[in-house]
């Protein structure tokens, strides 16, 4: 088992200007020993995929509070595919209505976290997905 820190990108696509949630998650992942690249507000899907590529992250978390997830998440997924890094698990957090969750999972999103999710649950899900991906790559 590798003891190298897991590298994660936390990104905020779209126009909403509230990143407290993203920062709380970044902090929780850090406190679990991960290296979290946080890129700040108002990122385009292209910027997110480019950062994921440059930083060689093992997971991407996108935080969306604006309700634009059905427009933004597919574009993020497409951009990751275009950059040949679609194997990186993507997590979505924010205000996501229950009825939209299935469609996001259908797109290949690893998990969707709504308001009230405990940070420990998110940390465990990221760690689990990354370790599964590492095991898959070496097995």
């Amino acid at each position: 088992m590798s003891t190298n820190p897991i590298r994660v990108l936390i990104a905020k696509p779209g126009l909403d200007g509230h990143d407290r949630g993203a920062k709380v998650i970044a902090r929780a992942l850090r406190d679990d020993g991960m290296e979290v690249v946080y890129t700040g507000l108002r990122q385009t899907p292209e910027m997110i995929a480019e950062a994921a590529l440059h930083e060689d992250v093992q997971a991407v978390g996108v935080s969306i509070l604006s309700g634009a997830h059905n427009a933004l998440v597919p574009r993020v997924m497409t951009q990751l595919r275009d950059k040949d890094i679609s194997h990186v698990p993507v997590f979505v957090g924010g205000i996501i209505p229950d009825e939209d969750v299935a469609a996001l999972l259908e797109l290949g999103v690893a998990a969707v976290f709504g308001p009230g999710t405990r940070t420990g649950e998110i940390v465990a899900a990221v760690r689990c997905a990354v370790e599964r991906a590492v095991a898959g790559a070496s097995g």
């Binding site: 902090r27 290296e35 700040g40």
Partner: peptide, 22 residues
Amino acid sequence: PTSPFSSGAVLGDRIRMRDLAG
């Protein structure tokens, strides 16, 4: 910096480098 306690880190330098994207 890496946290001396958790060995994790928040790497935030890209926030100020958004003009370099693309």
